[in-house]
Amino acid sequence: MDMSEIINVSNVHKEFDGKRALDDLSFSIQSGETFGFLGPSGSGKTTTIKLLTAQEGYQSGSIQVFGRAVEDLKDPKLMRRVGVLTDNSGLYERLTVNANLQLYCQLYSVPYKRIEEVLHEVGLTGEESKVVSKLSKGMRQRVILARTILHKPELLFLDEPTSALDPVSTERIHRILRTLNEEGTTIFLTTHDMYEAERICDRVAFLNKGHIQLQGPPRELRVSHSNSSITLLLKDGREQLVGNDHEGAEHIREVIANQQLASVHSNEPSLGDIFARVTGKELF
């Protein structure tokens, strides 16, 4: 295993009651990377997170986290280096934001003053005395994220962190994740939102029926699946499709010289388009 590798998954098979959930799963994640696992519901994203956090066992293959067998995550010392936000993480609804975070401060031996800091990080300064049941869904999700990063984990597992959130809350969480990543946190994220993956992931993997069909940096995937054409939007509202070649360049020069050009657009496919092309399925 490479020294900078935080996660290494090799030929993992997982079955539930004889039904295949993950098939020959292999990937690795480098330190400081944000890695996105894209796939429709039921593709095996949550199962993968459960395997990577030792919540579930598997039939064959190997999983290493921090260079150790994933089963070692049951050791509290190793678990301290990890933060997990599951798809259905809950809070103690009758308690305040502060009381919820105090519990985890004590569990992780983190001083209470960190609460103020982490609430600032997730944009909830001044909300610590609010009872959780009175918070909006977006605020709750940010409290859960605050709880997840309270102990400053080196590795974050996030299962659909913005699922069913409004665009403003989603944007806030994306900003937080980018900041965390800039500070050196490695992030493993599952999502079926290709926009989310494009915005915050350094690399993505497309998961379909428990099997990785394609992986790589979003930009590279888009370029490699591009049809090399360019769309010109003219001032009169017309659109023109030109090739990414000498002939196309001459045409663009001519349009510019005639002051007809409004804008130029590359025709790279979105991750959703690529996913559909590769798997024959939509992400939703």
Binding site: M79, V82, T86, S89, G90, E93, Y104, L107
Partner: peptide, 14 residues
């Protein structure tokens, strides 16, 4: 029911 047990299980609590 409130999915908080999982949070405890994924913490340093044994």
């Amino acid at each position: 029911e409130k999915n908080t047990l999982r949070g405890l299980l994924l913490s340093p609590l044994n």
